[in-house]
Write a protein that binds this DNA or RNA. Sequence first.
DNA 1: GCCGTTTTCGGCCCGACTGTTTTCAGTCG
Length: 569
Amino acid sequence: MKNLEIAWIISKIADLAELKGENPYKVMAYRNAAENIKKLDVDITELYKKNELLSIPGVGQNIAAKIEEIIETGKSKYYEELKKEAPRDYEKILRIPGLGSSRLRMILQQLPIKDINDLKKAAKAKKIRKLPGLGPKTEQAILTNVKIQENKKNLKPLIFALPVAEEIVNLLNKLDFVEKGVIVGSIRRKKEMIKNINLLIQTTSPERVAKIIKKMPGVEDVSSEGDVITVDMVMGIRAFIHLTRNDFYTKLQHFTGSKAHNIKLKQIAQQRGFELSETGLFKEHTKIVVEAEEDVYTKLGLQYIPPELREDRGEIEAALEHDLPELITLQDIKGDLHIHTNWSDGLNNIEEIAEQARKMGYNYIAITDHSKSLKIANGLTEDELIKQRNYIKKLNKNFKGIEILAGIEVDIRKDGSLDYSDDILKKMDVVIASVHSGFNQDEYTLTKRLIKAMENKHVNIIAHPTGRLLGKREPYKININDVFKKAIENNIVLEINASPDRLDLKDVHCREAKKMGIKMVINTDAHEKSNLYDMEFGVQNARRGWIEKKDIINTKSLKDLKQILSRKL
DNA sequence: GCCGTTTTCGGCCCGACTGTTTTCAGTCG
C-alpha cells in the first residue's frame, strides 16, 4: 500500500463517519490526515518502518493505528464496517445538491434504501416529502439529480486517475524484464475526465509481469485475456495493461487513441496506399520500420500530432496541410497571476510564495487574495488590502530576481457589482474578478452579472469563468458566447484556471476564445506554494484547446505584461 | 480525532441561503 491508497481509505472513512453522524471534528480530523498523507513526499511505509507515523501532521495514535493496519493487511476493519452500514453508491447520492450526510442519514433511518435506485423509487412514490424537514422541492431535486448522477458513468477527474497510473507504471518500470512502460489512452491525451487507465508495457516476460501485478499494492481484482491484464484498483478505477514484446511505437500510437482519431488516420493511410494497425505500418504488405511514434505520422506525410490534439477535431486535416498550431509549453510560462497567501485563505506568506516562484524560474507573480465578502476565506478589508499592497511594494525592493505584483481577486456580487470601490481597485496592479456565490441563478441573470463586472474599467481578468468543479459541481449557467463577446469588446483577459479540480475555461472553450482573438492567462489559483506546480495541468488543458504561446499573456515579458494590464478603454 | 498547552481538556473557519417551517436545521462555499 502506498500513500495514495492509504490517503484514499482514510478520506473514505471521513465520508462514511460523517454519514454515520460522528463528531464533525472527528470527521475533519480524518480528512485533514488524508490530505497530509497525500502531500507527503516520502513513502509512508518507510515512515511506518521507522516508527514515525506520528510525525505526519494530523496523525495521532488512532489514525496511526489504522495506517498500520492498512499497511500490514491491506484493509481497515473500521472502514469495512462503515461501508456495510452505508448505501452502496453513497458517493453518488451525496453529490445530489441539497442532500448532505445529515439528511441522508435521516432518510436511511426512516426508509429501507440500499442504493441510489431505491432512493429514486422512494422519491417517485412521494415518500421523501413525508419525512420531517423535507418537502416536495427536495424530492424533485432528488429525482432530477439522480438522473445526472446515473449518466456520469464513473468518469474520474484526470488528477484522480493520473497518480494511480503513474504509481503502477513506475513500479513496472523498475523491473529488469520490463523494457519500457508508458501511460497511454485518455490520460496521455490529458483528457479532463478519465474512464479507465491504459498502460503499454514492453516486456520480455509477460507472465512475470502478470504475476507482479497480482501482488501490487492497491489491487482488488485481476483478470487477464490475451495480451491485456485488467486490474480493478481499490480506489475504484480500472486499469488495462497492454503487454507487448514488439511493435512498441505503432502500439503506442494505437492505444493512445482517441478511437475517432485512429479511424480517420487509418483512412488517410489507406488513401495513400498504406495499411496502419497496432502491429505496424505496411506498404504493399511490406512492414515499414517505425522507430518512434513520430514516424507513424511522418511516413504518412503528416505533421506529428501531439497526443492532446488527437480527438478528431480537425487535427488530422491540419497535419496534412502542415498547419498544426505551435502548442504552448510549460517553459513558455513566465509567471502566475492568481495566487492566495495567508493574508486570506492561503497557507504560505508572500515571501514563501515568491521564493518558490523564483525557484521555478518565473519573472513575476501576482498576489491576489480574496476580497471582503468572502468571509469564509478570510477576505481582506479595504484597509488590509492597502496594507498588503504597501507591504508588497517594500518587499519588491529587497526581493531580487522576481517582481511581485499587488493584485486582488474581487468578488462579483449577485447583482454584478464588485465588493470594492473603483478608488481601491485602481490602485492595484492586477484586478481579477470572479463569482463565488449564487451559483444557481438563471442563465440570463448570471450572464448579465458577469458582463456587468466586465464593464468595470479596472477589471483585468475574469477567473474560472464557468465555476465548475470537475466531478463535483456543474458549471454555472452562463451564455459563454455573450461573455466572449464582452471580453473582446472590453479587452478583458479570460483565465484558464490550472487547478486540476477546475480546468476552467475547458479545452473547447479555449479554442473558441482563441478563434475570436480573446487574450487568456493560465493561472494556478494556488492556495499554498506546492500548488504553483499545477501550472502544468493548465498548460495541458490549454494545449487540448489548440492554444499557442502568443494567446497567453503570462508568457509575455514583465514589460509587455504591464502594458496589457494597464490597458484601459 | 488531533493539537497545544496558561497540558490531560477545550477548541477546531463561519455566514448566507434555502426549504422547511412559523423559528430553524441543514447545506454550501
